[in-house]
């Protein structure tokens, strides 16, 4: 508790955390998963992360300068770094430098700063950046590295750096030896060919227990980080629980109805960006619904949309689109979930 020089009361102030503290807590919760990601998928993750953070800070600083806003309080709030790191999780580990740069720059410059900066953006900047890349450069985004344990060969730090910045690989290594379709992509394609989920998981090397090999560890670490954030009360449980709950519920229904053509609920929960989305992306308070009942509706909406897009949409994963669609719905949800004010009768919706 600190006293503050204020024009009027209250003169004391003691939030559980500051806005910057909240951002850095989320970053801290992401770091173990980032480390595991790098460990399992190679140096590319580290290079991407460093590049993304650098680009984010430069773009943020540039826009602040153009908008004539003070640099340091904003650069120090951690929000640009967080956007950059979230995008890194969404990009292939060996994404070329310009892909990362374009995605991060679009996220910070257009999706965040052009709307007025932190607190004023209606859409999650990282997801806007990702979707822009997904629709503009679909081919590059399919070149996902295999987990190192599956890849025929791996790149050391300097060859990774040279591949990301110049696109050249050492002699004898082809990009096909390093990349493969992701588990979600494989599942979608193979289901399309009429195979059953069980057969697909058994025959394709990319699958491990629960989800994809490698990915499962990243997701479990993200889950641990997310639970830590809830425990620290940096985020509330409502959005993650509603999101994963509705995804589990709808995938269970279809799995029970027809397990030959639909992947299991566990596969849906632990593949792709469901965990990342539930704890780290959908919980972005700026773009989410604000009341607790509103958060439940918001999270549940994202969960259902993820399943719909994964099953019947054109993309293997749907977290980004689901989040952006529900970002659009957030003000409406807030409108209909206004709490009953003390001393008022039941509020008309």
């Amino acid at each position: 508790m600190k006293f503050r020089k204020a024009i009027s009361s209250p003169y004391i102030h003691h939030p559980p955390y500051s806005t910057a503290g909240m951002m850095f807590s989320v970053i801290l919760a992401l770091l173990p998963a980032l480390a595991i990601y790098a460990l399992l998928f190679g140096w590319g993750v580290v290079v991407n992360a460093a590049l993304a953070v650098g680009v984010a800070l430069v773009c943020e600083a540039g826009m602040l300068a153009v908008r004539r806003r003070p640099l340091f309080p904003t650069l120090g709030d951690g929000s640009a770094i967080l956007t950059a790191l979230l995008l890194v999780f969404a990009l292939p580990p060996l994404a070329p430098w310009w892909l990362t740069t374009v995605g991060v720059a679009f996220a910070i410059i257009v999706a965040k700063q052009l709307y007025g900066g932190l607190g004023f953006n209606p859409f999650n900047p990282a997801m806007v950046g990702y979707v822009v890349l997904l629709v503009s450069f679909p081919k590059e985004l399919t070149l996902w590295s295999m987990p190192l344990s599956l890849a025929g060969s791996s790149l050391d730090f300097s060859t990774t750096l040279s591949y990301i910045f110049s696109g050249s690989l050492p002699d004898g290594i082809t990009i096909d030896a390093l990349t493969a379709a992701t588990p979600l992509d494989t599942m979608k394609t193979q289901l399309g060919l009429g195979r059953t989920p069980g057969a697909i998981a058994a025959s394709e090397p990319v699958f491990g227990f629960l989800g994809g090999k490698g990915w499962i560890w990243v997701n479990l670490t993200l889950l641990a980080g997310g639970l830590w954030l809830i425990r620290r009360r940096v985020i509330s449980w409502h959005i993650p629980v509603a999101l994963l709950g509705s995804l589990a519920a709808i995938s269970s229904i279809f799995y029970l109805l027809d397990s030959a053509h639909n992947a299991s609920p566990l596969f849906h929960l632990f593949s792709g960006a469901a965990i990342l989305g539930a704890f780290f992306i959908a919980t972005d308070p700026v773009t989410a619904a604000t009341s607790n009942p509103g958060r439940l509706w918001y999270g549940a909406g994202i969960g259902v949309l993820i399943y719909v897009i994964r099953s019947w949409g054109g993309f293997p994963d749907g977290v980004a689109f689901a989040v952006l669609l529900m970002n659009m719905a957030a003000p409406t949800i807030d409108h209909y979930t206004k709490p009953r004010v003390f001393g008022h009768g039941d509020r008309d919706a």
């Binding site: 600190k2 006293f3 503050r4 020089k5 102030h13 939030p15 559980p16 500051s18 806005t19 910057a20 909240m22 309080p73 904003t74 709030d77 900066g117 932190l118 607190g119 004023f120 509330s236 308070p285 700026v286 989410a288 604000t290 009341s291 607790n292 709490p339």
Partner: peptide
């Protein structure tokens, strides 16, 4: 000494702590 003279004021991030 107990008074923070210039607390950094940041934009509202709609965290909802106030509503709670």
């Amino acid at each position: 000494s107990e008074i923070e003279q210039r607390p950094v004021v940041r934009p509202c991030i709609r965290c909802g702590n106030c509503a709670e």
